[in-house]
Design a binder for these strands. Structure first.
Length: 534
RNA sequence: GUCUCCAUCGUCUAGUGGUUAGGACACCAGGUUUUCAUCCUGGUAACAUGGGUUCGACUCCCGUUGGAGAUGCCA
């Protein structure tokens, strides 16, 4: 039944980032989940660029955003995307509508220009999900007067230590309000005075109040991820929607644009949960249908803190620069805070789309594990077409002065030998010994391999044995074995010292194949260099 | 302070009243391979805590602790 309803509606989800030059992991994850959801539901995935921060929203920043989305394969429908700056008049019109209907008022704080404030409606029952939840009493600090006006009820609560604690909320939070003093005497009763309070003609200030008595109203919505969420109106304040300089703030712009784009499902970060209650009210006051909401848990860094725009290495571009594949990153990120419910982990784009559901998204924050991402990336690399692998490797080799203009045939062989060992493309910097004239010796490794003075002598013998042979892997192995046999040592004992002397490092592909690839000339040169140095 | 939410191995997670609490990454040991990587085998490692409810709680309820978010004329 539910599925039928979904299909009939044709869902529309969106990603609405503000382009600030860099896209971080937490942000793009929201895009991924929206995309996965939309594709899974055969709906539309829209992009809206919230570029109202003129300082940071440069054309380059927007290009970066689009670039990253394309790289990850997050294709969006209805191009070009909606630019929020183009909607200014729309936002202002909506604000005027609210003003006209009495759902917003103008106010100035400290005598400046007037800002526009969205008023949480006194007749809040017209908002879906609002219900009375009983009469309650809240203690207030007698030293601070209670002020009741159309802007709300201001008072000081009582802290654990008996000190005044700042409190107060929108008027709508206090249905059937009575203000009582310490003896329980009624200082103020809103009954019969609603009109005057609401139209601003009456503002009451009540010193010596001890208690607020009112009918609490709570707004509840069903979150597609987190389940039922609710919040009492007496913990909400009216919200600024237009700054005193005349520019609309996020809340109204976001809601109006969602109406404009006919968004049916809003999937966004956890940090917006509290905004949702107010946004639901705005949708309703603007005469629009309230969309469905789903809030994603945050992704946190190794310190357990959410990634912020300042978090150095959490930018999507950095992962690309380090040689992570888009499929691997997408796969990994989809698995942060979500799982298909079975034991699959390596999943293709289509697998993910097919398996995705918001109901299976977790409620708790997830920590990024670079090692697991790296492992997954290695799996994707291992499966790459050799040509595609070579192409990528070439790109990453080119950043090194020893990695430019490489011989194609030689490079192909190196790639074939090394593909299974590479976890991320930036690690091709370890291939230097294949291409550079000079090797860098790993002193520590050498010290380990050449503990025995006799080993160096063996290298001398190896060198002359190499000189005489036709230089292929098989002959190389035979030559090495003849030396080990002659010296009466284990057949593989010399392999690592040879590797150290020729490549400078302690790990790599099979040494016979490696030497064959390097060629006789280079191998002998490297051995000479080694012998001259050590 | 107040409000909202969250809590299974180090990390990502499976688990919806009865399981030897499963898998993956990482780590350790062993095997295969000329080192490494791959591959195979095995191992260490978790239900934050205290109360309930129940014949029986990781699972349901309440408290505590811990964490996150919100409380902006930021988004």
């Amino acid at each position: 039944m539910i599925i039928l309803e979904y299909q009939a509606m044709s869902i529309r989800a969106r990603f609405a980032p503000s382009p600030t030059g860099q896209v971080h992991i937490g942000n793009i994850r929201a895009a991924i989940f929206n995309w996965l959801f939309a594709r899974n539901q055969k709906g539309n995935f829209l992009l809206r660029i919230e570029d109202t921060d003129l300082e940071r929203s440069t054309p380059e920043a927007i290009a970066t955003l689009l670039d990253v989305m394309e790289w990850l394969g997050l294709d969006f429908d209805e191009k070009p995307p909606l630019y929020q700056t183009s909607q200014l008049q729309n936002h202002l019109d909506a604000v005027q509508k609210l003003l006209d209907k009495g759902d917003a008022y103008k106010d100035s704080k400290g005598g400046g220009e007037e800002a526009v404030i969205f008023k949480i409606p006194w007749d809040a029952e017209r908002i879906p999900g609002v219900a009375d939840t009983g009469t309650i009493q809240v203690p207030v600090h007698p030293e601070v007067p209670v002020v009741v006006s159309f802007k709300g009820v201001d008072y000081a609560g009582v802290s654990a230590k008996g000190k005044p604690a700042p409190g107060g909320a929108c008027l709508a939070g206090f249905k059937n309000l009575k203000v009582l003093d310490a003896e329980g005497k009624v200082l103020f009763d809103i009954a019969g005075k609603e009109e005057q309070i609401l139209d601003g003609s009456l503002v009451v200030e009540l010193p010596g109040a001890a208690k607020l008595d009112f009918t609490r109203r709570t707004i509840t919505y069903h979150d597609l991820v987190k389940g039922d969420m609710s919040k009492p109106l007496d913990s909400m304040r009216d919200v600024v929607i237009v700054r005193s300089d005349g520019t609309p703030v996020f809340h109204i712009a976001n809601v109006v644009d969602d109406i404009t784009q006919k968004i049916t499902h809003i999937i966004r970060g956890d940090d917006h949960v509290e905004n949702t209650f107010r946004h639901i009210m705005m949708f309703t006051c603007l005469g629009a249908k309230v969309p469905k909401y789903g809030h994603l848990p945050m992704i946190v860094n190794a310190a357990g803190k959410p990634y912020s725009k300042r978090d150095g290495d959490a930018f999507v571009g950095d992962f690309r620069d380090k040689g992570f594949l888009p499929e691997a990153l997408l796969n990994y990120l989809a698995l942060l805070g979500w799982s298909p419910g079975d034991e699959r982990e390596k999943m293709s784009r289509d697998d993910l789309i097919e398996a995705f559901s918001l109901e299976r998204v977790l409620h708790a924050a997830a920590q990024m594990d670079i090692q697991k991402l790296t492992n997954l990336n290695g799996q994707y690399i291992a499966e790459m077409e050799p040509n595609a692998f070579k192409e990528m490797a070439t790109k990453f080799l080119q950043v090194h002065d020893w990695g430019k203009d490489l011989d194609d045939e030689y490079l192909t062989k190196v790639c074939n030998l090394m593909q299974s060992r590479l976890k991320k493309f930036a690690d091709v910097d370890q291939w230097k010994y294949f291409f550079a004239d000079q090797v860098e010796f790993d002193e520590k490794n050498l010290a380990k391999q050449f503990k025995e003075p006799a080993t160096r002598d063996a290298i001398v013998k190896i060198r002359s044995a190499f000189e005489a042979i036709d230089f292929n892997a098989e002959a190389i192995e035979t030559a090495i074995h003849s030396v080990t046999d002659e010296l009466g040592i284990g057949q593989g004992k010399l392999n690592q010292p040879i590797r150290g002397a020729v490549t400078g490092v302690g790990i790599g592909a099979g040494i016979y194949e490696t030497l064959e690839l390097l060629g006789k000339e280079t191998t002998l040169e490297r051995l000479d260099e080694f012998l001259a140095k050590y």
